[in-house]
Design a protein around this nucleic acid. Structure first.
Lengths: 197, 197
DNA sequence: GGGCGAAACGGACCGCGGTCCGCTTCTATT
DNA sequence: AATAGAAGCGGACCGCGGTCCGTTTCGCCC
């Protein structure tokens, strides 16, 4: 008798050695980022440090971007938890507008902090319905709470975009603009879009 | 006696062979893009097609991104001319709001058309005050014409961002969203930001 | 035309991301 | 414990972006 009843059609679990290697690789990657910066994280270096072959890194994470995304995922998950179930004004409990502004500021800071990593993580793999990222979903929800009408998915993307631009640094705001100003600018943008004062 | 008086401190002109090679390389690159797509444009392929060495390509364009930017520059310049001095509503003559909306639609289409190329061109080289790209400068100007007050540089970037997001495809709108909707969404955004109906 | 310094050239070379495939290790089953 | 077949492994190999430096070409001046 199996120790736990599997869900029907559940994908077979990861083999034990595979899981061990995944963990070792992730830890190696995190440590390399911490000690030598994102640029030093080559697939071979990570493999060597984890004591496995290069092929294994690619099997587990698919690509360098995938590996970076996995590294990023740790802090990102934590942050998302703070949004979903944390304390106000980031988490539920505060009025929507306040939450929205807090979200923007927090996301901005996070983007700046993890700029290199986010950049190295690139686009998430699936080119399909990932349009509904966590960020846009959340903003979209807050907009609806605020009673904003219109193409909410689009408006949400449009609001999130300037926050990301800072990181991508592409044809837009530059890093030498002080954070306060970016934050203030975004707040103004939010007010204009939501029609609040 | 020199055939033309040089400007003071003007950088020495390009040597004749250098100019010839630049032209040949650019033509080779354009032709490769046209016939085989952006992905096929490897530095070695371009060099071979132009009948020069690989090193020359790098000397002229610095990097693959630089080369792509140079290729892109051709159509981009033409487009910019249409904005600056073309016929209304894109060019001067139409009311600012109309121009702004025309700009958005046009830019959106252009971004979609040249998506691969723009992506391959990456960030422009100088990480300095390039905050003032042509697009943001123009939007900023139109906003001021509309009498919008506030942090105009920021608002301009924020408006341009969603247009670019389509291309970068990052954590935002996806390619499978119909263009009309992107256009309509952007128009709505403009109205909200500018406080117009 | 000849000579000279500077600019440009070209291709061998390097590092890294990514693939491939023969070999090893795990685990379910009896 | 033995076994079989699937899952995982690893490192040789490839292609491309980018660098380097000895050689060639250019164009100015005599």
């Amino acid at each position: 008798m199996p120790t736990s009843l599997p869900f029907v059609d559940a994908p077979p679990p990861e083999r034990r050695d595979a899981a061990r290697n995944r963990e070792a690789l992730l830890e190696a990657a995190v440590e390399l980022v911490r000690s030598q910066g994102v640029r030093a994280v080559t697939m071979e270096a990570v493999a060597a440090r984890a004591g496995v072959g290069k092929g294994t890194v690619f099997r587990r994470f698919g690509s360098r971007e995938g590996l970076m995304a996995a590294v990023l995922d740790r802090s990102e998950t934590e942050w998302q938890a703070a949004i979903i179930g944390g304390r106000p004004p980031l988490g539920p409990g505060a009025p929507p507008l306040e939450r929205l502004l807090a979200f923007g500021k927090s996301r901005l800071l996070l983007n700046i902090t993890h700029a290199e990593l986010i950049d190295a993580a690139g686009n998430p793999v699936p080119p399909s319905l990932e349009a509904l990222s966590f960020n846009t979903m959340h903003v979209r929800y807050l907009l609806s709470e605020l009673g904003v009408t219109g193409d909410l998915p689009y408006l949400a993307s449009a609001l999130v975009a300037p926050l990301d631009m800072v990181v991508l640094g592409r044809r837009g705001a530059r890093a030498d603009v002080p954070v306060d100003r970016l934050d203030a600018g975004w707040a103004d943008l939010v007010h204009r879009v939501t029609g609040t004062t």
